[in-house]
Structures are given as C-alpha cells and as structure tokens.
C-alpha cells in the first residue's frame, strides 16, 4: 500500500502546484502585460491582490454581504484601483526615464501597504470561504475542490484573455501599441485608452487571483501582496516578461516547482527555490522561455 500512498501524495502535490501556479499565472499576466505596453515593472501590482483580499473580507465580514457580491466587489475594486494608479502615478511620467517610473511603482506599493496597515492594523483578518464544496474523492484519492475550482477558473480566464488579445480590436490595438507606440498613434489608436485598458485587464486578473488565493489561504494582511507579487514577478520573468503565454507557463512552472520542493520534504526551501530560479533565468536566459530577444527592437 505504500506505493499507493506515494502516488496519492505526488498527485496531491501536483494539484497543489497547479493551484498555486494558476494563481501566480493570473498575477504574472498583469506584470507581463503592463511591461509589454509601457516597459514598467509595476511593483505595486502585488499589493492590488492585498486590496482585493481586504475588499472580500470587508464585504463578507463587515457588511455581511453574500460571497458572490464579495467576489464582484474584489474584482471591480482591483480593476478600478489599477486604473487609478495608472492615471494618477504613471500617466504623468509617460515621457520620463524608466527609472522614475520604477521608483514611483515601488512608492505606490509602500503607500498601499502602509495605508492598509494604518486602517486595518498589522494583524491578519480571516476571510470566510466563498463557497462550501465537498472535496472530491476518487477511489480513496481525495482532491481538494478549492484546487479544482482555482485551476478551472484560471484556465477560463486565460482562455478569455487569449481571445481578447488575439481576436478583438482592442486586443490587436494592445499588441500594436506594445510593439510601436508612435506608429499605433498614426493608426488612430488612442494610447491613453489602450494603456488604461491594459491596466484594467491586468488588475481584474489580479482581483480574480486575489479571490482564488483567499480560497487557499483565507487571510488578508497588509504585507501579503509583496511575497505573492514577487513570486508572480519571477514567473513573468521566467516565462519571458512581456509575453502573455510566457506568463501562463511561468506561473504554472513556479507553482509546480514549489510543490515538488515541498513533496521532497524541503518545504522550508520553497521561497528560496523560487528566487534561485530567478537568478538562474537572469544569468542563463534573461529573456525567459518565450521572451522577445533583446536585440529585436532596432
């Protein structure tokens, strides 16, 4: 029977890996899309997830609203916040050096973390479950329903995003702007609207990621976004920053890598392995798995 247990453990870890990987992928998409369009590493992106978790908590605990409304509020709130940050903090710096933008992003991140700490305190708030589903069991193998819901929801989001980017007029405009902003303007594309839309989509995905994250780790705390954001950032770099399929692959790869490390009984090394991956990617192939080559832009 020990073979059976080993297989069960491995299956469970793979499922765990896909679960956290799906969440990393959703968040990594926001990093990658924003980088693709304005060459900004938006370090405030992780904190949007934290805000989403607090919104869910507020809705369900403070205002006793139903979970569906809490999900809607978290996603809508994250979307609006992402657009607001872009308009207030990044638009005025559109023609400034990249470094000013990067420093501003870090500033926005600290601002969000400290504002939420001020309002809600440093302690964690418990986010109640959004749904009550029984875990599935197949011949003695129990699969977490949270994991399955997360993986399916993320897959649906990524499929919709791919359709949006490949097939819609706005999606094509996003790709055009990310390739050549000047030429895109000459086509009649509004740069401001396209960038704003990109932030909206990236932040909405972060909102969904935030809700899914809370199904696994039901807590909101002011600093939760920084580690989560950092790992998603590593996922985006691994996949090739700026690449949408890259962010998806990178996210899943990071989730699976963490799970495998845990399965090997080294779960204290989980975070270390993620950053080791970052260093290896930066040394061996800085453009990531699917990244554009650095000399492509002439």
């Amino acid at each position: 029977m020990s073979d059976m247990t080993a297989i069960t453990t491995i299956l469970k870890q793979i499922l765990n890996g896909l679960q956290s990987g799906s969440i990393y992928a959703l968040i990594a998409l926001g990093y990658s899309m924003v980088y693709g369009i304005i060459m900004l590493l938006n370090f405030a992106h992780g904190d949007i997830i934290m805000v989403g978790a607090y919104l869910a908590w507020l809705c369900m605990v403070r205002f006793a609203l139903n979970p569906a409304l809490a999900v809607a509020a978290a996603v809508a709130g994250c979307t609006a916040l992402g657009m607001l940050i872009e308009k207030a903090a990044y638009t005025p710096l559109r023609s400034s050096p990249r470094l000013s933008l990067l420093i501003t992003a870090i500033g926005v991140s600290y601002l969000l973390e400290n504002t939420f700490q001020l309002i809600f305190g440093a302690g964690a708030k418990t986010v109640p479950p959004f749904f009550n589903a029984k875990n599935l069991s197949f011949g003695g193998v129990v699969l977490s329903s949270n994991a399955i819901v997360t993986i399916i929801a993320a897959a649906v989001c990524m499929a919709l995003l791919t359709l949006l980017v490949q097939k819609t007029k706005m999606g094509k405009a996003m790709r055009a702007v990310s390739e050549d902003m000047g030429a895109a303007q000459l086509m009649g594309i509004s740069i401001n609207r396209t960038i704003s839309f990109t932030f909206a989509v990236g932040s909405a995905l972060a909102g969904i990621g935030s809700v899914l994250y809370c199904t696994a780790y039901p807590q909101a705390d002011p600093m939760m976004g920084s580690m989560l954001g950092l790992k998603a950032f590593v996922a985006a770099v691994l996949g090739g920053i700026g690449s949408i399929p890259g962010a998806m692959i990178g996210g899943l790869a990071i989730g699976l890598a963490e799970a495998l490390v845990s399965a090997a009984g080294l779960s204290t090394w989980k975070d270390g392995v993620v950053f080791a991956i970052l260093i290896i990617v930066l040394v061996v192939k800085p453009t990531g798995i699917l990244g554009r080559s650095l000399n492509e832009k002439v």
């Binding site: 094509k172 790709r175 390739e179 050549d180 086509m187």
Partner: peptide
C-alpha cells in the same frame, strides 16, 4: 490625414491582415 512614416513602421508581430485592420482603427 494618414502618415506613412519613415522606415515603414509596420507592426512586425501582427499579421498582414491585422496591420490593415489597425489602419482602419477609426
């Protein structure tokens, strides 16, 4: 006013048809 810029500046990663669609963005 349409402007065909110096060096063409077509969208290299978009398909031929998508480039044309971008030209009709308005």
């Amino acid at each position: 006013i349409a402007h065909v810029p110096e060096g063409r500046r077509i969208f290299l990663k978009l398909t031929v048809e998508e480039n044309l669609e971008m030209g009709a963005y308005t």
